[in-house]
Simulated assay, not measured.
Amino acid sequence: MNIGDFGGAGAWLIAALLLGIAELAIPGVFLVFVAVAAAIVGVALLALPDLPIAAQIGAFAAWSVVTVLIGRRWYRDYPVEGDAARLNDPAARLVGAVVTVERAIEHGSGRVTLGDGTWPARGPELAVGTRARVVAVDAGVLVVEPLDE
């Protein structure tokens, strides 16, 4: 038995496999849903081998829309938590970091030390040497609040 024995179903299943591999190689959480749609059409062709190509393409398009909508809803209802959610947002990874006030925060602005660098900061009045927590990053300025110790 070889892949040719499966006819058009084999082509759709190979397409699903290639799309799945492409999702792994180029992660974007999109191709996986199209791969599922191709797999559904491939399995449907195993049950209905005489399905015309126009119907196959129509089914693929419809299932692609359905799977993408299901995926969008899933990620809306169950968002990615932790560091993975901030992987491509370096500024967001600073939220929660503990900093030390380098230049007193007066009238809402000052400067803080984070790691081996210094950053402009906004927040309540804080004296030099005070430790604070980053609660947000706004246009390269760290928004801080006093660290409850």
Rank of each mutant, 00 (worst) to 15 (best):
N2Q: 10
F6Q: 05
G7D: 07
A9S: 15
A11S: 11
W12G: 09
L17K: 00
L19W: 11
L19M: 03
G20Q: 06
G20A: 08
I21W: 04
L24I: 13
A25K: 05
A25D: 04
A25Y: 06
V29M: 13
F30V: 14
V36I: 15
I40H: 00
V41Q: 01
G42K: 00
L45V: 03
L48T: 09
L48C: 08
D50N: 08
D50S: 11
A54W: 14
A54E: 14
A54N: 09
A55R: 04
I57K: 08
A61T: 09
A61F: 03
A62P: 02
V65Y: 00
V66D: 05
L69Y: 02
W74T: 05
Y75N: 07
Y75G: 00
R76F: 09
D77L: 15
P79F: 08
P79I: 02
L87S: 06
P90R: 12
R93T: 15
L94Q: 04
G96Y: 05
G96D: 11
V98A: 10
V99H: 05
E106A: 13
V112A: 12
T113H: 07
T113F: 00
G115A: 09
G123P: 08
L126K: 00
L126N: 06
G129N: 11
A132K: 08
A136K: 02
G140I: 09
V141F: 03
E145Y: 00
D148Y: 03
E149M: 05
